[in-house]
Design a protein around this nucleic acid. Structure first.
Lengths: 201, 201
DNA sequence: GTCTATATGTTGATAGAC
DNA sequence: GTCTATCAACATATAGAC
């Protein structure tokens, strides 16, 4: 896990707000420094370029979100329970961290190829965990999924999409949204016992 | 519907590419003009500010996407068929117009309050059409939905989310993705006939 | 690790000729 | 409707003092 000093953290939090409000291209290092109550020159001591700052923001968000998803995975063994827990917690995390999550999702194009590759490698981890949860349910027959790869993607998207529209100032029913997404997730994957037929051995 | 001259269209298409690649804040009117093989001064004859250009891009995309959704709605009457058609065509539209769709989704914060309000009003139309398709299915009992409002939102999100990751250079199975989303949509809303029980009158 | 001051280039937008 | 030339403001990033 990446460690950050207190001084870095101050700029990191300021950068999240500025990038979220102005977009990466519209954000200025002056304004980020001002939000952190520092001069622009002080910022450059900790992050040599504006792009390095964006990378730090994206990396922290991806590490935290993965930790959240993995913890939910580990907390249950029953496939349906586990899926609900994963989608629900993942959604809540995105609502609790809308600004940094939004930056990490929408400003990736501004990263250098090397930095972008590192973030995409984090994303493959997300996908791996979700696929594993999916396959466990398929194995015991409670899930019935045509395309595991695409479905894992869509299950993660339920949580990620929240950052596109969620506004903590307008909408506060975080738990209700999380439950809605968990309900949809289960409907998306559950196997339907057919009528007039015994379950296969 | 908004009409555009040929000269405007030239700048509009250039703006889509530039905004999509650089983000609104990172895009420059010079580069947009260069993409259109015109000088920056020529651009300002047609669009008085960079923000007006962004608005024109967003408005065109929203009008086209709504037209696509409405056409799919009108093409069928069976609720499940219709839902499949809507989600599938809506997804295809977003893949066929990834760049302008992405700009319209991710750069809204740069619009003036007045312009943003106009775009959000388009969005309420999307939602209204999808809700109507949903309620028709609930009425005849083929759909079973807890929260019509949130579910309509999630069904639209299936198509919209595509612009977050779809890359026509890497992924070309547009029809497969559309079908996957349509399958998920049906699973998200269909009512499950219970075993050992007659359907309610 | 922070500051003030500044170098160097770029930006949105305009003036005025054709 | 397009151009070249330009303005005034602002951008990222650095130099050097404390």
């Amino acid at each position: 896990m990446t460690t950050v000093t207190n001084a870095q953290l101050r700029f990191l939090d300021a950068a999240v707000d500025e990038f979220a409000e102005q977009g990466y291209g519209g954000a200025t290092t002056r304004d980020i420094a001002a939000r952190a109550h520092r001069s622009a020159a002080a910022l450059y001591v900790h992050y040599p370029t504006k792009e390095d700052l964006l990378f730090a923001v994206c990396e922290r968000a991806h590490e935290q979100a993965l930790e959240c998803l993995q913890a939910a995975y580990d907390s249950r063994t029953d496939p349906e329970d586990r899926l609900r827990e994963m989608v629900s917690h993942f959604s809540v995390w995105h609502m609790d961290h809308v600004r940094s999550a939004r930056v990490s999702q929408y400003e990736l194009r501004a990263l250098s190829p090397n930095h972008r590759a590192q973030i995409l490698s984090h994303r493959r981890e997300f996908h791996r965990v979700m696929r594993s949860a999916l396959q466990a349910g398929v194995r015991v027959g409670v899930f019935d999924v045509d395309d595991v790869h695409r479905t894992a993607h869509s299950l993660l998207a339920l949580g990620v999409d929240v950052v596109r529209w969620f506004d903590p100032d307008l909408e506060s029913d975080v738990a209700g949204i999380a439950r809605h997404n968990a309900d949809l997730a289960v409907r998306m994957v559950r196997s339907i016992p057919r009528e007039h037929e015994e379950p296969a051995l």
